[in-house]
Simulated scan of single mutants.
Amino acid sequence: MSRDIAVLGAGMHPWGKWGRNFVEYGLAAARAALADAGLTWPDVQYVAGADTIRNGYPGFVSGATFAQALGWNGARVSSCYAACASGAQAIATARAQILAGLCDVALVVGADAAPKGFFKPVGGDRPDDPDWLRFRLLGATNPIYFALYARRRMAMYGATLDDFAAVKVKNARHGLANPNARYRKEVTLEDVRESAVVASPLRLLDICATSDGGAALVLTSMDFARKHGIADPVRLSGLSTVTPTFPKTVVDLPDFATDSALAVPAPERPFRASLAHAAYEEAGIGPDELSLAEVYDLSTALELDWYEDIGLCEVGGAEELLRSGATALGGRIPVNPSGGLASFGEAIPAQAIAQVCEMTWQLRGQAEGRQVEGARAGIAVNQGLFGHGSAMIAVR
């Protein structure tokens, strides 16, 4: 049985620090996606909201919040939170409704108004919360984890500071042509080298910012798309939200300890690689058939890890792949042609949705100024907290 659904509409509110309510960003993105699909709000039968947990009660029930703001139309709603994978979980929920035959047209929306600085635990003092404990007990803020990943690449595979900086240079160049990107400025290796150290070896320009922004998709059944005269839409053909396989190993940071797992055989694949593998199996394609990839570059070093996790090269080969130019526009497999988080910053519930927006525009040939020539298939991947992550494959 085919699991394909059609992506008929994609829309975004530009990323930045606008200082407005997150609902405004989500509404703008939703209206843009509906216009792109050639549909209106009364056509929508299901709304899947990706939650923001830093914007009060409306953020916790985002599906209903956006439905109310658009005007109650009787659509069914859902709201979900999965940290950085929230948008992908919302897409998965809408996809399941469509494939089950419970609706034909679904609207997926995510938006955020992010605080300044790195994201902190919410809810006050919570000594039974691992997310709170890693900050207070270990001092392990997100940039610290990013730095641990970077040190691991340096120790195991010979990555250099200039390799990390080259990822930023590449993504900043890609983002120049993206009207939705927050940062649209050329960056040099020297700019990265001279930026302040945040968590050694990573500097300020190695780490993504926190941003405001919104993204939305109109997803439909294939039958609906064909009945409305769209014979060859962009299709979501694979979507994976698998959890890690026990035991998690040092490759799968962050965990407080792994000693208790030493007697258990290691899983066949580390967590991020298992996400991609499950999506490839569902879509029936392999990494050699990809035209582009959108990966969650929370830091420059993490982008290199993703090259290996999604099968673009062998383990330990990411630096050579980057240095060859293969992952830049015009190369064999452009990575983050949108500009990635390096150009956008992180608006948590919107980001995975934004990745599918970019794949949609690329596969349609509408990514002006950053178009991957002849794009036919793409993968978008991210990792959230506590075993949440996603891999989504779009084809045309």
Rank of each mutant, 00 (worst) to 15 (best):
R3L: 11
I5G: 01
G11F: 07
H13F: 11
P14D: 04
G16I: 01
R20F: 04
E24T: 11
Y25D: 07
A29K: 11
A35H: 15
G49V: 05
A50Q: 06
A69S: 13
L70H: 08
G74C: 03
S78I: 06
S78E: 12
C84A: 15
A85L: 06
S86F: 01
S86D: 03
Q89G: 03
A90I: 03
I98A: 07
I98H: 03
C103D: 12
P115A: 12
G117P: 07
F119M: 10
V122W: 02
D128N: 14
P130I: 03
F135V: 04
A140Y: 04
T141F: 05
Y157T: 10
V167G: 10
H174F: 10
A177K: 12
D191M: 08
S195L: 06
R203I: 08
C208D: 08
A209D: 09
S211M: 12
T220W: 04
D223W: 00
H228W: 03
G229A: 01
V234I: 07
G238P: 03
T241D: 05
T243I: 09
P247M: 00
T249D: 01
L253N: 12
F256A: 14
S260W: 09
L262T: 14
R269I: 07
S274N: 13
E289G: 07
S291H: 10
V295Y: 00
V295G: 02
S299L: 03
L302V: 13
E303P: 02
D305E: 12
D309I: 04
A318H: 09
G330T: 14
S338P: 01
F344S: 12
G345N: 04
E346Q: 09
A347H: 01
Q351M: 07
M359C: 12
E368M: 00
R370G: 08
I379G: 09
A380E: 03
Q383A: 08
G387C: 02
